[in-house]
Design a protein around this nucleic acid. Sequence first.
DNA 1: TTGTTATTGCGACTTAGTTGCAATAATAAG
DNA 2: CTTATTATTGCAACTAAGTCGCAATAACAA
Lengths: 131, 131
Amino acid sequence: MKRRNTQAQTDILNVLKFTDRALSHEQLQAELEAKVDRATIYRVLNRFCEDGLVHKVMDEDGKQHFAYCAGCDKPNNKHQHNHFHFKCRKCGTVECLQHKIHIPLPEGYVITDFNGMIAGYCKRCAEERDV
Amino acid sequence: MKRRNTQAQTDILNVLKFTDRALSHEQLQAELEAKVDRATIYRVLNRFCEDGLVHKVMDEDGKQHFAYCAGCDKPNNKHQHNHFHFKCRKCGTVECLQHKIHIPLPEGYVITDFNGMIAGYCKRCAEERDV
DNA sequence: TTGTTATTGCGACTTAGTTGCAATAATAAG
DNA sequence: CTTATTATTGCAACTAAGTCGCAATAACAA
Ligand SMILES: [Mn+2]
Ligand SMILES: [Mn+2]
Ligand SMILES: [Zn+2]
Ligand SMILES: [Zn+2]
């Protein structure tokens, strides 16, 4: 199925490309100038995931977040996202932690995907709490 | 708020205690002899989590799974669950991987919780696929 | 310019989980 | 044992995230 260039898609990709965060559908919507339908946003994001432009992470509340694939070595959707994500309980931002991790696997098991989410307080919010 | 002993609670805790898996609400329901209301199951499980008897993990589909706290060092809900979970895409089981992991954190960040989920095929299902 | 079909918007739908409320029952007090 | 207190349950209604069918729109290739 051949892909076409549309406004919605380029807008969405640009938002993701120019942030270092993983955004929920809601957060993404807020960053978009033009209003784009909810279903469309999800369809675009899922297409990006299939194409390996973007990766999806699940937060501890069961909400999906999407991040631009920056340092992803392999092309297409073949690359593994073996890094953790950090979600701040206060400001709600989800970020990709750059540190690559090694995933231990029992003998005979096969991995297809990985989702690692750390929850807590980011530096900024942690400092505010200390006060 | 003082806790009371009820049938539903002991049944649910027993199911979790005698399996090495993390169960979704649905899987748990299926293991219960007596029928227990969906809302009650969730309420019981959340209470167990608060009390540190059980821990909750989110799978990559955004579905909650609950596992008995076996090797959890610290008491109450203060302990960290610094181990990965593995979900088989074929048979659907979620298991706690015993290997304790170290979670890398940027300077100044504070962790409160961790959710690590590996998806793939368990040994049994992987072997069937090879055939 | 026109035809094909990928993409969009809208509304309806699904599924997981939560919540309000009245009924039930565990525990403590008398 | 009897009664009072209130944690727990079941039910139904609700919420929120995400998906899907379908008709309208618009890329893009011919
Ligand atoms: Mn990431
Ligand atoms: Mn576990
Ligand atoms: Zn923060
Ligand atoms: Zn399996």
